[in-house]
Write a protein that binds this DNA or RNA. Structure first.
Lengths: 114, 114
DNA sequence: TTTATTTATCGTTTTTTTACGATAAATTTT
DNA sequence: AAAATTTATCGTAAAAAAACGATAAATAAA
């Protein structure tokens, strides 16, 4: 492999699994998004702009993070009048957990040498 | 909170735990790094430039990814002559698993509303 | 000793992410 | 009906990540 680095489309060079795990990991790759997820889990009744109150970020920035979490599938959102309501997508987390577990299992039976 | 967005240093606004999880997740947030980790685990004898052979990326780019994984603590490296050898840091993965498990547990007992 | 191999690092470019303010649309409240 | 509230989106700026080629240092092979 690696003549002129194979394909022009880098994304396609990796497996579907690798891409999916990377996408999900990316959703967790910012402390603000982790804080949002924790807050959504804490109040099991869904919240909306209350998240903004809790985070040290501007409303538009929080909105952006919420969008990313939603696009990754980790949260669900619904509109209630002028307010909007988000919550944990339980099924997605279960799936995420499964993918991670499988991944970690691979690393488990490798005895390092360094 | 949130008057002028609190502190000027955004990083400090989140907990140590949130930051650590975000850092670890970021290390997984690229398919190339996942592929590298899988390859390191597959050959349980450590490899080095053989990783470059397997990935559709330039040598310098792979080297960069290896550095990031090492900085995140997920892999260990050692030099053997002109070659350099990397391997899975088993303890780090165990720790990572623990942190994730704790995090997922929080999300588990939240019944969504959307 | 000269040549070849291996790999980390430098410099650079391009792309993505993060963050904010301003604004617009929708909906309550007054 | 007018004013206020809520929130997504737009435009933009700054920072970080991703990628490459070139190079230098170290070691191995000739």
């Amino acid at each position: 492999m690696n003549l002129l680095h194979m394909s022009t489309n880098k994304k396609e060079a990796f497996t579907q699994e690798e891409q999916e795990l990377a996408e999900l990991a990316k959703a967790l790759a910012h402390p603000a998004r982790i804080a949002i997820l924790k807050e959504l889990a804490r109040r099991n009744v869904c919240i909306c702009g209350e998240i903004v109150e809790v985070l040290p970020l501007a409303q538009s920035t929080v909105s952006q993070h919420l969008k990313e979490l939603q696009q990754a599938g980790l949260i669900k959102g619904s509109v209630d009048g002028v307010k909007s309501c988000y919550c944990i997508n339980y099924e997605a987390f279960k799936r995420f957990e499964g993918i991670l577990e499988k991944f970690f299992r691979i690393t488990e039976n490798s005895q390092g040498c360094c």
